[in-house]
Amino acid sequence: MNMQNPDGYTTADGRQIGGVMMEMKNITLRFGGVAAITDISFDIREGEIRAIIGPNGAGKSSMLNVISGFYVPQEGEVWFRGAKRPPMKPYQVAGMGIARTFQNIALFEGMSVLDNIMTGRLTQMKSGLLAQAMWWGRAQAEETAHREKVEKVIDFLEIQHIRKTPVGRLPYGLKKRVELARALAAEPKLLLLDEPMAGMNVEEKEDMSRFILDVNDEFGTTIALIEHDMGVVMDLSDRVVVMDYGKKIGDGTPDEVRNNQAVIDAYLGVSHDE
């Protein structure tokens, strides 16, 4: 397999990976004097599952926040499908088809599971204020059409039984799943997952891994995920970026990364919470 081929490559399990979807070029992000990210470049290809790993505080979440527009890097460029992306607000990034979940679950606690997932479709809902106020045919038809899409996601993630439950009442593992559902409801081109399995038991991790693979497989969604569980990372991902102290210290297939001396040192040298 030739991962440098600009048109893409074929994975060991026979999946076709396309050209570059998103490219981070020489990103540097500083908070005051502290550099969270220093001169990092990597790309994410169409259809790929790309992992970002590294010890605590390495700058992984900061990198996702740069992609989703929360943080504006002091230096570097973000390219999306062959065009340099101008500085964007998070809601504009969402409009480009990039959805995400958070390391600390960020659901709308006052709303039901169904309403939370329905919010995932807000970027696609177009009927105006007046049409909605009158609940005219168009607004109602739109609501129904989006509800159908959302029900598919609900079936896909096997959460039919909690549809009407207020999110605040759910246990942690299910909240993570609802957050994934909300992101999936947007039918994103690129899905960013910040530690989707943190704090889960083995069974829940297996479920979540299966969902991630299925999303990638069935919908062709490109996925970038941060994860601490090495077993999971090695199983799921096509390519891995390794960060440490804000710098990139490795990039390649799981096997390449596993045998990379710098990576081994970083993981042995730094105490870890997992």
Partner: peptide
């Protein structure tokens, strides 16, 4: 913050 990320202006 989450509202913005799902595309709410």
């Amino acid at each position: 913050i989450a509202a913005e990320i799902i595309g709410v202006n």
